[in-house]
């Protein structure tokens, strides 16, 4: 477990960091919490020439809530998301998701931005980002730009981030009242990653029917996805057991599920349905309960 030689760079601000990345592009890797990159380097699956440690940049460590948006700096650690009062109030789904990540040690070190930029198909955060319609604020040599969550995850461990860009913060729009969310997950027994992880959001209309339904799924496909068929099936209907089950059955529609020693493609497809149902049920309950989730 000894990495190859590398150079260590610690920029003083985002501008310096971006400038350095722009000069070295693929030869440089951004180091945040180090929960994926460092093991890969120790196994020599990654051998970047430069490690750009952004870990001390204060601009990336802010959490802010205004009337419309919750903004979370990319260096906020999973453990803080899991426990911060502000997040528990403004976006309990995010706290529920963070609590499912790895183990206590991983959550104490790992960061939201690091995990999202790494884009492991079995990670927990992506589905939640899709469901929340999160916006990723990104700094590059030409200034800032926004990438929508739906456009961010492009392939297995690949995102829309360019090698000279840094993920600065994640912006989560405020949810309307009568909205309930849930993240449920089947753990891979060795790694704890998701065999299936389903984030869902249901907003009930005045008639008690589902006005808005959003379902995001991790672990099943090489890229986390919005299960649009599920959403369309349930939209406009009462959120009863039958309608939820009918909708959940479409969880892996149009997807060729991953297959590995932990779960076959067929099993992942079946479990996507089971867990989509569980997730929607929980979200529906929460939407109807007085306390918003």
């Amino acid at each position: 477990m000894f990495p190859a030689n590398f150079n260590y760079v610690r920029p003083n601000n985002i501008r310096e960091a971006v400038q350095f990345l722009n000069e070295h592009k693929d030869d440089a890797k951004v180091l945040a919490g180090g929960q994926s990159l460092i093991p890969m380097m120790k196994l020599r699956l990654a051998a970047p020439e430069f490690l750009v440690d952004i870990g001390r940049l204060p601009e990336l460590k802010e959490i802010d809530l205004d009337d419309a948006v919750l903004t979370i700096g990319s260096l906020i650690r999973h453990a803080d998301i899991e426990t911060a009062d502000l997040i528990a109030r403004a976006c309990p789904l995010l706290a529920e998701t963070a609590a499912e990540i790895g183990d206590a040690q991983v959550r104490n070190r790992g960061t939201i931005g690091g995990s999202l930029a790494h884009a492991d198909p079995s990670a927990d955060l992506p589905a939640t980002m899709l469901v929340l319609d999160a916006r990723f604020s990104v700094a590059g040599p030409d200034g800032r730009r926004i990438i929508m969550a739906e456009d961010f995850f492009t392939d297995v461990m690949t995102t829309a981030l360019r090698p000279n860009e840094i993920l600065v913060s994640i912006e989560i729009p405020k949810m309307s009242r009568r909205t309930g969310c849930a993240y449920v997950k089947m753990h891979q027994q060795a790694s704890g990653f998701a065999i299936v992880g389903v984030a869902s959001l249901i907003t009930l209309g005045r008639n008690g029917r589902a006005e808005d339904v959003r379902v995001g799924i991790n672990g099943v496909s090489g890229v986390p996805y919005r299960a649009h068929a599920v959403e369309e099936s349930l939209r406009g209907k009462p959120v009863d057991e039958r309608n939820i089950a009918e909708a959940a059955a479409l969880a892996a529609q149009g997807v060729e599920p991953l297959s590995d020693i932990h779960a076959s493609s067929e099993y992942r497809r079946e479990m996507a349905t089971v867990y989509a149902r569980r997730s929607l049920q929980r979200a529906a309950q929460r939407a109807s309960a007085p306390q918003r989730h």
Binding site: D103, Q189, A190, S191, I261, H262
Partner: peptide, 13 residues
């Protein structure tokens, strides 16, 4: 060896 690391060999926690 397919289960060559603790990411794939499920040793109980």
């Amino acid at each position: 060896l397919v289960t060559g690391s603790l990411m794939d060999y499920a040793f109980p926690k």
